[in-house]
Design a protein around this nucleic acid. Structure first.
Length: 566
RNA sequence: AGACCCAUGGUGUAAUGGUAGCACUCCGGAUUUUGGUUCCGUCAGUCUAGGUUCGAGUCCUAGUGGGUCUACCA
């Protein structure tokens, strides 16, 4: 290897994103003894989606890279919206993605007592006060970005009075919403979050973990950073919209004199043709546009799992999408590439016919059955082979036959030779039409007995190769063909149009009666396959003994279709 | 309007003052018992104007464009 190459390689290895640069600088400076500790902090009020997957990968992988750890912490400070059911689903999704938080499963609600003490400390330092103003008054006094806010008339209560009032808030002396605890920062700050932010509100609501123990709950700004600090998180990664919160994050840490976690903001990932707004996703579910949170068209982790996306592909996708601070729109084709790339290596090949056309091989003996050997994956010999029954009557794909095909069409047509994958070369001798519909009803062929796959001595070269199943042996299955949920790359980015206007009515097509090869009888929900020449498919949990159901994960690249489109 | 953040091919992301690279997409070719895979190739980029410097994508200033912030949500 030349010096130049060596240099190039070293250079490549050193290519870091801006967060890694910060971390490596911290390590060089011996900050926190070189320790790296991150956290993934979901609020248990909804399902995880592709955007969360990005944050999960980022937090877990960056800690892993620097020999650190990642905590799972539920940010459960709002009892009204949060439920245990979400906690369980979130945990399952993260595990499925391939990450493990060991025993470090934390809840902001575990810190309620500590947080209360922190608040008392701030009050004692004259840095927080109880405000009796109404929500309207508080908003009014807050000012606007260009107009400074006004100080609350309650801002200068004595420390003793504040202490007593705050104790009273906790004790239940006051009705919901009648008082709040506010930090005494700066009502004239150009940063709205510094204009005496609310730290605690009174809210009599049953909490999924603490039950009715508390009636005051901390706000995000007085819970998140403090939880980071309690857990001694070194690098607290969050999305860009929290950038204005950082001065406050730092202010609390400084005034409380607690562990100095550092917040670093990155641009959240947007993916074309997908939306991640919880509210909008919920509407799709509630109004029946999709079958549920795990509908295979949903950008949720559970949806992608049911669709058949391998977790490794999602991880690769998040890695390849990169990390920076500018707004981005990742093309969904990158996701599809990662899914195909993974499945190409791992998914066994099988044959299925979605739109059947019967082929009769007139010179093949009636009643004869041959068991043809087929490789399970040409990319990977170790995946072995299986056999497929071959007989006189077969189904092929209707699209694989044309009455009067053009020259570049490599499939079946009158007078043409075509190969059946792992079978024989067929010559098309003619076809019959349904007199009622005018549709081709059956194709008649002869086969070349010396052209059997693996022992072909015929010397005939057929340009095309078709997939097939034996009529007598094929199983029936339901196949669900999925396409993108929306017809627009950014459905929620139109000022004049609602995202639902872009709902893709063709995003689900159901093939009630497809024919699949017999080996698929063993498929279990979640198993992924390549249906030869059609795409990647995953067995759905709706499958029954009588009727397996398959979801199309993604199509194969199709240069022929592309040529025709032109 | 104010503060803050951001600006590199169609998309995403590198280059850390010294030859603008990689991936996806697109297009073309080779191979192929999947019109898949694989392999090779083409096209294509530093927002604008000044300044600092031997040298600027990188540093400074201004402009332009985009984004964020004004919940008792997180």
């Amino acid at each position: 290897m030349s010096d130049l190459n060596r240099k190039e390689e070293a250079k490549e290895k050193e290519s870091l994103n801006f967060i890694e640069q910060i971390i490596e600088e911290d390590i060089r400076n011996g900050k926190h003894g070189g320790r790296v500790h991150t956290r993934f902090p979901p609020e248990p009020n909804g399902y995880l989606h592709i955007g969360h997957a990005k944050a999960i990968c980022l937090n877990f992988e960056i800690a892993q890279k620097y020999g650190g750890k990642t905590n799972l912490r539920f940010d459960d400070t709002n009892p009204t919206t949060e439920e245990t059911e979400y906690v369980e689903n979130i945990k399952r999704d993260i595990r499925w993605l391939g990450f493990d938080w060991d025993d470090r499963e934390y809840y902001a609600s575990d810190y309620f007592e500590q947080l209360y003490e922190f608040a008392v400390k701030l009050i004692s330092k004259g840095l927080a006060y109880v405000d009796d103003s109404t929500p309207g008054e508080i908003a009014e006094m807050k000012g606007t970005p260009t107009v400074p806010g006004k100080e609350s008339p309650y801002r200068n209560r004595s420390i003793e009075e504040n202490l007593s009032l705050f104790r009273g808030m906790r004790a239940g002396d006051f009705p919901d919403g009648s008082k709040v605890l506010r930090a005494k920062v700066d009502m004239a700050s150009s940063n709205m979050h510094m204009r005496d932010p609310i730290m605690y509100r009174i809210k009599r609501d049953h909490h999924h973990r603490t039950g009715d123990e508390w009636i005051i709950y901390p706000m995000y700004d007085f819970a998140h950073g403090q939880s980071d600090s309690i857990e001694k998180i070194t690098h607290s990664l969050c999305s860009l919209e929290f950038i204005h919160h950082r001065p406050l994050y730092d202010w609390f840490i400084e005034k409380l004199e607690i562990f100095p976690s550092r917040q670093i903001e990155f641009a959240r990932m947007n993916v074309s043709y997908m939306i991640t707004s919880k509210r909008r996703l919920l509407k799709l579910v509630k109004e029946g546009y999709v079958s549920g949170w795990d509908d295979p068209r949903m950008p949720t982790i559970s949806g992608m799992r049911r669709r058949g996306f391998p977790p490794a592909a999602i991880r690769t996708f998040c890695d390849k999408a990169g990390i920076a601070k500018r707004d981005n729109l990742i093309e969904i084709s990158l996701l599809e590439f990662c899914v195909r790339d993974e499945l190409n290596r791992t998914a066994p090949r099988v044959m299925a016919v979605l739109n059947p056309l019967k082929v009769v091989i007139t010179n093949y003996p009636e009643g004869k059955v041959e068991h043809m050997e087929v490789e399970n994956n040409p990319e990977d010999e170790s995946m072995g082979t299986r056999t497929m029954p071959f007989s006189r009557e077969l189904y092929i794909e209707r699209e694989d036959f044309m009455e009067d095909p053009p020259k570049k069409y490599f499939r079946m047509g009158p007078g043409r030779d075509v190969r059946l994958k792992a079978g024989y070369i067929l010559r098309c001798e003619g076809f019959e039409k349904d007199p009622a519909t005018g549709e081709v009803a059956e194709v008649r062929c002869t086969y070349y007995p010396d052209s059997k796959s693996g022992e072909d001595t015929s010397g005939i070269k057929a340009k095309g190769t078709l997939h097939w199943v034996s009529v007598a042996h094929a199983l029936e299955a339901e196949v669900r063909l999925y396409d993108r949920l929306f017809a627009d790359p950014q459905p929620d980015n139109h000022e004049d149009k609602d995202y639902l206007e872009f709902f893709n009515e063709d995003s689900l097509q159901v093939v009630e009666k497809a024919y699949i090869e017999p080996s698929l009888a063993q498929a279990k929900p979640g198993d992924t396959f390549q249906f030869l020449r059609l795409g990647y498919f995953s067995a759905d949990p709706d499958s029954t003994e009588q009727k397996p159901v398959f979801n199309r994960t993604v199509t194969l690249k199709d240069t022929w279709a592309k040529m025709q489109g032109r």
